[in-house]
Design a protein around this nucleic acid. Structure first.
Lengths: 148, 148
DNA sequence: TTGCTCCTCACGTCACGTGAGGTGGC
DNA sequence: TTGCTCCTCACGTCACGTGAGGTGGC
């Protein structure tokens, strides 16, 4: 499989398969504005997706499942990213160094918040695992006792 | 605060506070049979909870949030635990060593399944964190560039 | 042409949220 | 007695699931 494959557009069922979700969910995300709608798609015709869009969706689903974010949370997140991307384009012409710095620092803060969320979850999972491990040892002890 | 405090029964609002949930959620869990109902509570009177019950609820909430289990999943889990606990009582009188061993092994298998779920989640969070870290480095690089 | 996947309503469901109106314990 | 928390309906909401009936591309 070549890395620079033709990148055929994907249908909604394929995208659902690739991201571990359902067509209904993808349509719903479009409906609430979490995924962009192709403005040129005629009523009743198929939705088509690029691999890049699949990656973006995969990212959203991970945030949803791993960090427990609501779709409203995710929407805020996406909107902020979009706003920053729009501003980034502006510098390329305007070259306002100070504004550029501010936006980059906002990005950093944002990423920092996400990493802290991840770390908190990891810590909770660590605790849960330690408790399960101790439970496991207890049951193993009982089994050894019983087999004597 | 003594460890062997009188253990005053707690009201639903206090339990909600301690477990980071709401009274409505606790009542709902009772309604669907996920939490036991005190069979002697008169209609309209307050629910009361022990600290032990608070711990059990906390455990359920952790499973729900960290592993993404549905309430149906949790119910299966609780029912299986209850069944094993009942059986454990039976040996104490019957002393059927073979049955005892089987039940303990089922417990072990069960704990093993849970730990694998935890590990899978941890791995996913690790990957997410690595990606966030690389994003962070990229933005930091841009900031350094911009400040030159 | 025949399957298969897609489409758009639209109602159902899960896991609660949110009042409305009323009762109970320090 | 006055607040506060509790109670029980019961309808609302979020995030989809699940048909029903129909169209579109290899």
């Amino acid at each position: 499989v070549s890395v620079s494959a033709p990148a055929r557009p994907l249908r909604i069922g394929e995208v659902a398969e690739l991201t571990g979700t359902t067509p209904r969910t993808i349509r719903y995300y479009e409906e609430i504005g979490l995924l962009p709608e192709a403005e040129d798609r005629p009523q009743g015709k198929q939705r088509l997706y690029s691999h890049e869009e699949v990656e973006r969706l995969r990212e959203l689903i991970r945030m949803r499942d791993l960090l427990g974010l609501s779709l409203e949370d995710l929407k805020q997140l996406v909107d902020a990213e979009t706003a920053r991307a729009r501003l980034r384009k502006r510098w390329q012409t305007a070259e306002d160094a100070e504004e550029q710095r501010e936006i980059l620092e906002q990005s950093l803060e944002h990423i920092g918040r996400q990493r802290r969320l991840v770390r908190a979850r990891q810590a909770e999972l660590e605790r849960l695992d330690r408790e399960l491990a101790s439970k496991q040892r207890r049951v193993r002890g009982l089994l050894r006792e019983a087999s004597e």
